[in-house]
Simulated assay, not measured.
Amino acid sequence: MTFANILAFDTSGPHCATALLQGDCVHGARVVEMKRGQAEALMPLLEETLAGRDLGWSDLDALAVGIGPGNFTGIRISVSAARGLALALGIPAVGVSNFEIMAHGNTARTLLVSLPAPREQVYLQLFRDGRPAGKPRLAALSDLPPDLGISSGTTVTGHLAKEIAAQTGGIAMPAALEDIPGRIARIARNRLEEHGAPTERPAPLYVRTADAAPPSDPPPVILP
Rank of each mutant, 00 (worst) to 15 (best):
T199H: 08
V156N: 00
I187R: 09
L177F: 07
E193K: 03
P92M: 04
A51S: 08
S142G: 06
L126F: 09
P69G: 02
S80D: 09
P116F: 10
I184Y: 01
A166H: 00
F3L: 09
A86S: 15
L63D: 04
R201F: 06
D217E: 15
T154P: 03
R189V: 00
Q22Y: 01
R186E: 04
L21T: 10
G70P: 02
D179W: 02
M173W: 11
F9W: 13
A166S: 13
D129L: 07
G74R: 02
R36D: 14
L126Y: 11
F99I: 07
G130R: 02
C16G: 09
N190C: 06
L46T: 06
S80N: 08
L144C: 11
A8C: 08
I184E: 06
E33V: 12
F3E: 08
S114N: 13
S58F: 01
A188Q: 12
P146Y: 02
L50M: 03
I77G: 00
R131W: 08
I75T: 11
R83N: 06
V65G: 00
M43C: 07
L111W: 13
G28R: 11
A39E: 12
G182E: 02
D24N: 14
A140H: 12
E120L: 07
A188N: 09
Y123I: 03
D211M: 03
L7Y: 12
R189S: 00
G23D: 02
S58L: 06
R128V: 15
R208Y: 13
F9V: 11
L160C: 10
Q121P: 07
Q38T: 14
G66V: 08
Q125D: 09
L112F: 08
R137T: 08
E40S: 14
T199E: 15
A212G: 03
A108C: 09
L46F: 01
I101C: 06
I6H: 06
D10F: 13
A103S: 04
R76M: 08
R183M: 01
M43K: 00
A212Y: 11
L87C: 08
G68F: 03
P174M: 02
Q125S: 05
L89E: 05
T18F: 10
Q167G: 00
G134E: 14
C25E: 15
A185H: 04
T2R: 13
R119V: 13
T2E: 14
H15N: 10
F3K: 10
A139S: 11
K35P: 03
R131F: 09
A86G: 12
I187N: 01
P198L: 01
F72R: 00
D61P: 03
G23T: 13
L46K: 02
S151H: 09
Q125V: 07
G74W: 01
H195S: 06
L50F: 05
D129G: 03
I77D: 01
